[in-house]
Amino acid sequence: MTQVQRFTINTVGRDFAVGDIHGHFTKLQAALDAVGFNPATDRLFSVGDMVDRGPESTDVDVWLAKPWFFAVQGNHEQMAVDAHRLSHKGQASYIHMINGGAWLYGLSTVEQAFYVDLFAVLPIAIEVMTPIGLVGIVHADCPFDDWAQMLGVLEQEQGAMQRSVQTICQWSRARITSENDTGVSGIRAVLVGHTVVLQPTVLGNVYHIDTGGWRGGHFTLIDLATLECFPPVNPELCSR
C-alpha cells in the first residue's frame, strides 16, 4: 500500500474532486456531465467512501479502472479490508455490515477478495499539484495543523503511530464538529468528505465537500485549480 499518492499538474484539462459516492455512480456521472467533464483531458479525485449504502457498489471496480479516476481509502473501504483480513469474524465485519456493507458479503469469496484487494492498495492521502499550489485530499480530517507533519508519519513511521494517524485521516470529525478554522499549513487546500454538510463548508483551508449526494442531497464537484464548487453556492454558505 502506498500511503501517499502524488500527481503532477494537469496541463491539458481540469481536475475535480468529489465527496462520498457510496454506490451512486450513475448520479455521479450526471454531475460530471453537468460540468462538461472530458475524460480525455480531465481527472476526478474521490475523497473515499465509494461503496456501501447505495445500489451500485459493485461498479466501483469499473470506476477505479478508469485512467482518469483516483481515490483515497475512506473508512468504508478500510472497514471492508479489516473485516476480510479477520475472515469476517467478530466486531469488524459486524460494524461493516450495519454501515451498508451487506452488498459485499452477498458475493462469492473470490469476488469479495477481488474488491478488498482493490481497496487495500488505495492511498490514505493524495497530493495534486495545481496552478495555485498543492491541494491535498484525505477522507475525513488532517490530524495535524501542518500537512508535511502528517505525510512524515504516514510515509516514515510504522506500527501504532502510523495507524493512529491513518485512523484520524479516515474517521475523525474533530475539525468540523469544533468548527476549527485554524487550517493546515504547507498546502493550498485540503479536501475532505466523511461528514455530510448541506453546502460545501470551508474551515481555514479545509474544504468539506460531502453534500450527501448518496442520501438525497447533491454531489459537489470542486475544481482543484480554482477551488470553485459545482453546482455554485452562495459564498456565505461556503464557509463558517
Rank of each mutant, 00 (worst) to 15 (best):
residue 103 W to P: 15
residue 210 D to V: 01
residue 229 C to P: 00
residue 98 I to W: 00
residue 173 R to H: 12
residue 119 F to P: 02
residue 222 I to K: 07
residue 135 V to R: 01
residue 144 F to S: 12
residue 154 L to P: 03
residue 83 A to M: 08
residue 221 L to V: 00
residue 83 A to P: 06
residue 192 V to H: 03
residue 138 V to Q: 00
residue 187 I to F: 13
residue 111 E to W: 02
residue 144 F to E: 10
residue 187 I to H: 11
residue 24 H to A: 00
residue 14 R to T: 14
residue 116 V to S: 12
residue 113 A to F: 02
residue 7 F to T: 00
residue 81 V to C: 10
residue 145 D to A: 14
residue 63 W to T: 06
residue 14 R to E: 13
residue 75 N to I: 04
residue 130 T to D: 05
residue 166 Q to N: 05
residue 164 S to Y: 09
residue 162 Q to F: 03
residue 164 S to T: 08
residue 64 L to C: 02
residue 96 H to K: 06
residue 181 D to S: 15
residue 135 V to I: 09
residue 231 P to H: 02
residue 141 D to F: 03
residue 23 G to L: 01
residue 125 A to H: 02
residue 44 L to R: 06
residue 176 I to P: 07
residue 157 E to H: 13
residue 182 T to N: 15
residue 72 V to F: 12
residue 82 D to I: 07
residue 217 G to C: 14
residue 70 F to S: 12
residue 167 T to M: 12
residue 149 Q to G: 01
residue 187 I to T: 13
residue 176 I to H: 05
residue 4 V to C: 12
residue 139 H to N: 02
residue 74 G to H: 05
residue 97 M to A: 11
residue 36 G to C: 09
residue 240 R to N: 11
residue 206 V to A: 02
residue 46 S to Q: 08
residue 234 N to L: 04
residue 143 P to E: 01
residue 180 N to E: 15
residue 85 R to S: 06
residue 214 W to D: 04
residue 99 N to K: 09
residue 15 D to P: 02
residue 112 Q to C: 10
residue 159 G to E: 03
residue 161 M to E: 12
residue 173 R to C: 05
residue 35 V to C: 05
residue 12 V to I: 09
residue 8 T to S: 13
residue 26 T to I: 00
residue 127 E to K: 07
residue 107 L to C: 07
